[in-house]
């Protein structure tokens, strides 16, 4: 066989038959344009149909195919074999989450945190449809747009050393989403959300390592969102000293 190939280690764990995770090595035909996700699909189609992994859109929009590529959180569809060839690639499920099966993780804690931060516009008062739409200037939109680009892939949670140490920490994506709503001119829910921000498990669990922003595939920069929220929380603290609620 003259075709180029690349070796891929996949961490396997099938809870009904394995006591603990183990590594299985596959040899996959190599082409420069092949993504990690395509390599996994090749494995599933041609080598071992029992390998489980999540995927959907193949174009970094759905946020399903997050996994650890050589211990770095990546989207399978956005990481390419050419960046690793001819070295061996190791694939593991996203760090800091429990393994459900093979490369699939249990994301329940992350989803719960997204829900907890009230990720919806809380208007000052309900507006009737006949009153028309909410107006927003480009400047008002620029204040939050970047933080609204999150695809909930969970890479930042896999990257965050503080979440790894203590998963009570609200975490990067949820706090970035919180900042997205607090910074939206149409929203009036800041007071409610600041209670979440002000906690030890809120922004103060963050020590600004910044790895979340490094691994983010959509350049959301959650670390920046959290630092901005720390400033807001400090202002809120000062105000709270004079006006306790």
């Amino acid at each position: 066989m003259s075709e180029l190939t690349i070796e891929i280690d996949v961490l396997r764990y099938r809870p009904e038959m394995d006591n603990e995770p183990f590594t299985q090595t596959f040899e996959v035909p190599y082409t420069a344009e092949m993504s990690i996700l395509e390599a996994l699909q090749y494995i599933k189609d041609h080598l071992d149909s029992t390998v489980s992994f999540r995927w959907s859109c193949r174009m970094a929009i759905c946020g399903s195919c997050g996994l650890m590529v050589n211990s770095v959180p990546k989207l399978g569809c956005k990481a390419f074999l050419r960046d690793y060839y001819p070295q061996k690639i190791s694939l593991e499920p996203l760090a800091n989450f429990p393994i459900e099966r093979d490369l699939v993780v249990v994301m329940d804690d992350f989803i719960k945190k997204l829900e907890e931060i009230k990720p919806y516009i809380i208007p000052e008062k309900e507006k009737c449809l006949s009153e028309g739409t909410y107006q927003q200037t480009p400047e008002q939109m620029a204040k939050f747009k970047q933080f609204s680009m999150c695809i909930n892939c969970g890479l930042c949670y896999a990257a965050c050393p503080q979440y790894a140490l203590d998963n009570k920490f609200t975490g990067p994506a949820a706090l970035a989403l919180l900042a997205r709503y607090n910074r939206d001119s149409r929203d009036n829910g800041e007071a409610e959300r600041m209670k979440i921000v002000n906690q030890e498990e809120g922004v103060w669990g963050c020590t600004f390592v910044g790895y979340c922003s490094v691994v983010c595939p959509k350049d959301v920069d959650p670390a920046a969102a959290i630092q901005l929220l720390k400033v807001e929380s400090s202002k809120d603290y000062l105000i709270g000293m004079f006006k306790p609620d």
Partner: peptide, 13 residues
């Protein structure tokens, strides 16, 4: 129930 952290003082310093 939410518990406010006193971290802003130390973070400021």
């Amino acid at each position: 129930t939410y518990k406010r952290s006193h971290e802003p003082v130390f973070w400021g310093l």
